[in-house]
Write a protein that binds this DNA or RNA. Structure first.
Lengths: 182, 182
DNA sequence: ACTCAATCCTTGAAAATGTCAATCATTTAT
DNA sequence: ATAAATGATTGACATTTTCAAGGATTGAGT
């Protein structure tokens, strides 16, 4: 799995008896009390930094999306279904690095909510193209706003240039990800 | 939750019976066959890009660390135990964004292998300071090399400047992640 | 000194996710 | 036509996350 994480949104209810790390979690997203450790060797690992920023971002994203009954996963699927690309489930699985069976569950839920629909592929009837319905598109538009606001909030301490630079470097690293392996 | 993932290394053994996505997988590792989807709206989401790059990196990291009997998690803990900071388990949990109970399991394993040890906190005997043993430090040094090589491999398509820039922006985003806490 | 609440680590159990094989329907190659 | 391969789905199993509860210890207030 993921690897350095714990990012899902937690219910707002706060246990009383034993609280583990909840005490602070509304106020902070990644402002660890353990800043002492920040100059350990791993703090310069890009992998570690990615994990940490990603984890913190997931918390914000999921919180922002909860209002729409979505999580990062379902939001991603819905977003992809909103393009005019009619992605197949397999494409969704590959693109999102998920197992095909997880896509089934995700789409089942979105379909039951009337947000997307499955249509047989025109050239290959085994595959199912996933497209958003009208209401799905409307919901997506609203959720997208919230997600973008969450992103902006998380990156508030960066300058516009830094954000642009980050985005472009990440895109480059992600999309040209593969020389020759295995 | 992790969020967009599936990153653990899989055993090299390949099932025979039903092969699903094997046909292509020799050619790609993250070079998705679904590059069509790359110009969807979410492809510019920094959160999404972080998830994807992090996921891909985890695979490489875990593969590189497997040789030492470590995974990203245990490697991180070992690395932190190698500093002279004597982190407590709670600090490790906060720093790594993990539940304290997960730290217990991680350290149990490292301790059984003789790589780290727990000492009672000098000022507070409830807490346990985790420090690496001599062998732990030796193993860490070797593992660190492998991890850095994996990182370099993953970012091979970026220029040195881009890598430096990425690192510094990530650090800034991670460490100043918080307006007002505590 | 004594009590009470809070904190640290630990345990165990429940919920959520990840992994994988097997199956059906369909397509593609031989 | 047959056989192998592929897309979607299901269900089983493993791993991870999340959470509550417990013992030990500390610190605050009385």
């Amino acid at each position: 799995m993921g690897s350095l994480n714990n990012s899902t949104t937690r219910p707002a209810t706060r246990p009383k008896g034993t609280m583990t790390l909840q005490a602070r979690d509304a106020a902070e997203s990644s402002g660890e009390a353990s800043a002492r450790l920040a100059d350990s060797s791993i703090s310069t690992d890009i992998g570690f930094l990615l994990a940490k920023l990603h984890a913190a971002g997931s918390v914000l994203n999921n919180a922002a999306l909860a209002e729409f009954g979505l999580k990062e996963r379902s939001y991603s699927v819905l977003a992809l279904a909103c393009g005019n690309l009619g992605p197949t489930q397999r494409e969704l699985a590959e693109f999102l690095s998920l197992d095909p069976s997880q896509i089934v569950a995700l789409i089942d839920e979105l379909e039951h909510r009337g947000l997307v629909e499955r249509k047989p592929g025109p050239s290959d009837r085994r595959q199912k193209l996933v497209t958003a319905t009208k209401t799905g598109r409307t919901l997506h538009a609203a959720a997208q706003k919230a997600a973008q606001a969450a992103e902006a909030q998380q990156l508030a301490m960066l300058t516009g240039e830094e954000v642009a630079s980050l985005r472009s470097i990440l895109r480059k690293a992600v999309w040209s990800a593969n020389p020759a392996d295995r």
